[in-house]
């Protein structure tokens, strides 16, 4: 059994300790907001916060999350009230939406670290195929 703290809740999961956190979140805990994109920490779709730091969960062994606080897109706010979520809605950022959880979590982590503007953008250098980059820049610009 592996004990996890995700979005403030404690869970005990019975999985191979080498299982990437991404697949424990998705297939065991049902937190599907975190996405599989490349599996090799290149695209950023699987980004979550671990102890406040952005982390690609597709290559993060679940056993390494023991004793740490994991926050996923579902735990960012209860009502889309986080400033990043509000800015994303205001600027109508998502298109297909698939990469957006990772984008939003990286942005929220950068804000939490006290960063602004281009500093934030440099820390969310993820892949989006739809081309939401233009509006992400607009949204981050007012955070």
């Amino acid at each position: 059994m592996i004990s996890l703290n995700v979005n403030g809740n404690n869970y005990n999961v019975d999985v191979d300790p080498a299982t990437p956190l991404l697949w424990v979140l998705r297939d065991v805990l049902g937190l599907t907001g975190t996405k599989y994109g490349c599996g090799i920490e290149v695209c950023g779709a699987c980004t979550v916060m671990i102890d406040g730091q952005r982390e690609p969960s597709c290559v993060f062994d679940v056993s390494s999350a023991i004793g740490k606080k994991v926050v996923t897109i579902e735990g960012l706010s209860a009502d889309r009230s986080h400033p990043v979520q509000k800015a994303w809605i205001k600027h109508q950022v998502p298109q297909c939406g698939y990469c957006q959880s990772g984008m939003i979590m990286a942005c929220a982590a950068a804000m939490k670290a006290g960063h602004f503007g281009n500093e934030i953008l440099s820390e969310m250098n993820h892949i989006c195929i739809c081309g939401t980059y233009s509006r992400i820049k607009d949204a981050v610009g007012e955070l």
Binding site: G33, Y36, I89, V93
Partner: peptide, 20 residues
């Protein structure tokens, strides 16, 4: 404002890969 956007900022939008 687009109908689908709120669900795409809080992880609740269900893509095919999210079906359980």
């Amino acid at each position: 404002p687009r109908v689908d956007i709120p669900a795409k900022v809080d992880g609740s939008a269900k893509f095919g890969i999210d079906i359980f």
